[in-house]
Computed example of a mutant assay.
Amino acid sequence: MSRIFVIGNEKGGAGKTTCAMHLISALLDQGYKVASIDTDLRQLSLTNYIKNRELYNQKNPDKLVPQPCHFYLTTKGENDEDANLLLFEQKLCDARNLAEYIVIDTPGYHSLLSKLAHSYADTIITPINDSFMDLDVMAKINPDDLSIISPSIYSQMVWEQKMQRAARDQSSIEWIVMRNRLSQIDAVNKRNVGYVLEKLAKRISFKIAPGFSERVVFRELFLYGLTLLDLTTANLGKPLALSHVAARQELRDFLTCLGI
């Protein structure tokens, strides 16, 4: 059976597609067969990333980078919920027949497709920026003493999809929250977010993963469809810098947390 990773967060701008593409690239780099599914009907960021990767390969046949088997849904018939759900399940079935790992990118808003994708996850990965604004989709926080008032909309949705998965095939879903775009500078806000996340992890059962620091290399290669793991083989004329080495270590630490 393929292992399914779902990258999800109902707040946009948290780095879901960046996380998804680096996970895909890392799995391909280790020689695994990988499939990817984009459920963001409008933005299709992961699909565009992979199309850029295809274009790079066409232009550089002597410096090819590995590609996942990619599937995506479009806005055609987007108001037909039953048709979209059926199409997603068909594409997921096709992906399972082709790959050892499946990575599903979801939109930064609530949708039926996103809920369905979460319910099929073996592991949900939630990138979250290091701010209480981003944390608000996961929990309501008391500003006076940083106590947790209640789980918020996204946490409730994840719990519901865990129940759906258990009802469907008696399987459980692992949930990992990844602190993303961390500042290199220690700050009160950074410590406070970490403190609240640790308390929340115990309350609603998720694991905190080491995330990616605020580094240009995690974003600058989008137009080429590449990631930092491709820099040693890609024809970009871009030498490896110390910051790239540090970024690769962050990615390795993340993969270790995932058990890869």
Score class of each variant (00 low, 15 high):
19 C>P: 00
104 I>V: 12
103 V>I: 14
92 L>W: 03
150 S>Q: 11
180 N>F: 03
164 Q>L: 12
22 H>Y: 05
67 Q>W: 00
11 K>Y: 08
212 F>T: 14
234 A>C: 09
161 Q>G: 02
105 D>N: 12
109 Y>S: 15
33 K>N: 12
61 P>N: 11
174 E>D: 12
245 V>S: 10
213 S>V: 05
173 I>W: 12
57 N>W: 05
78 E>C: 12
51 K>G: 01
231 L>F: 01
154 Y>H: 15
135 L>M: 11
162 K>V: 00
77 G>I: 06
176 I>M: 08
171 S>E: 12
99 A>Q: 10
167 A>Y: 07
50 I>V: 15
228 L>H: 03
147 S>F: 09
175 W>N: 02
114 S>N: 15
142 N>V: 04
52 N>K: 02
172 S>P: 00
129 N>A: 11
41 L>T: 02
8 G>S: 15
40 D>G: 08
115 K>H: 15
46 L>D: 04
88 F>E: 01
5 F>S: 03
56 Y>C: 09
189 N>D: 09
209 A>R: 05
25 S>D: 09
38 D>V: 12
97 N>D: 14
239 P>Q: 09
64 L>E: 15
195 Y>T: 13
229 L>Y: 10
255 L>Y: 07
83 A>W: 00
74 T>P: 05
135 L>C: 02
243 S>D: 09
185 I>E: 11
174 E>T: 05
85 L>E: 10
7 I>F: 00
193 V>T: 10
60 N>M: 08
171 S>G: 02
171 S>D: 05
186 D>R: 15
38 D>C: 07
236 L>S: 01
232 T>C: 11
4 I>G: 05
